[in-house]
Lab assay of single mutants.
Amino acid sequence: LDITFHVDGKNIHVHGASEEVVRIIEELIKNNARAEEIKETLERLLR
C-alpha cells in the first residue's frame, strides 16, 4: 500500500488511501501529531 500525504498551508492532500484513512490522517495532523505517530497509526490500521 502506497500512501502519500503532504501539508500545504492548511490543506492536507492524501493520495492512495480510503476516505476513512484520509479522515484519520487529517485528524492526526490537526492534532499536531508527529510524522512518526501518523506512520505508526497507519501501520496499525493497515495490518
Rank of each mutant, 00 (worst) to 15 (best):
S18W: 03
H15Q: 08
A17Y: 01
I38M: 04
G16K: 06
R47K: 13
N31R: 12
G9I: 01
I25N: 00
T4H: 15
L1Y: 14
D8H: 04
I38Q: 01
V7Q: 03
L45S: 03
R34E: 09
E20A: 09
R47M: 13
E40S: 13
F5S: 06
R23C: 02
R44C: 06
A33V: 10
E20F: 05
D2H: 09
A17G: 03
I3Q: 03
N31S: 13
L46S: 08
I3H: 14
T41P: 01
K30C: 07
L1F: 12
I25E: 00
I38A: 02
R47W: 02
I38E: 01
D2N: 07
H15F: 09
K30Y: 11
K10H: 11
A17H: 01
I29P: 00
A17Q: 01
F5D: 06
N31M: 13
N31Q: 13
L1P: 06
D2Q: 03
E36T: 10
E20D: 11
E27N: 14
H6L: 14
I12G: 00
T41Y: 12
G9P: 00
I25P: 00
K30I: 09
I3Y: 15
R23F: 11
R23Q: 13
L42P: 00
H6T: 14
A35E: 08
N31C: 07
H13T: 12
H13R: 06
E19H: 11
E20M: 10
H15W: 07
H15Y: 06
A33E: 06
S18I: 04
N11P: 14
I25D: 00
T4V: 13
E43L: 07
V21F: 07
V14H: 00
A33Q: 07
V14Q: 00
R44S: 12
T4S: 15
E37R: 08
I12M: 06
H13W: 03
E43A: 09
N11Q: 14
E26R: 11
I38S: 01
I29N: 01
K10C: 07
L1D: 07
V14F: 04
F5A: 09
K39V: 15
R47G: 15
A35Y: 15
F5Q: 07
I25Q: 00
V21T: 12
L1C: 07
L1I: 15
E37C: 08
L1E: 09
A35K: 04
R34D: 12
I24W: 08
K10M: 15
E43M: 08
L1A: 08
T4Y: 15
S18F: 05
K10L: 15
L1H: 10
I25S: 00
I38G: 01
L46G: 07
V22L: 07
I24T: 11
E20L: 08
L46P: 04
L46V: 11
F5W: 07
N32D: 13
K39M: 15
R47Y: 04
T41R: 09
V22P: 00
R47E: 13
V14K: 00
E43Q: 10
F5R: 05
E37F: 10
N11C: 11
L1K: 13
K39Q: 13
N32M: 11
A33M: 09
H13I: 10
I12D: 00
K30S: 10
K10T: 15
V7L: 03
L1S: 09
I38N: 01
E40P: 02
G16P: 01
T41V: 14
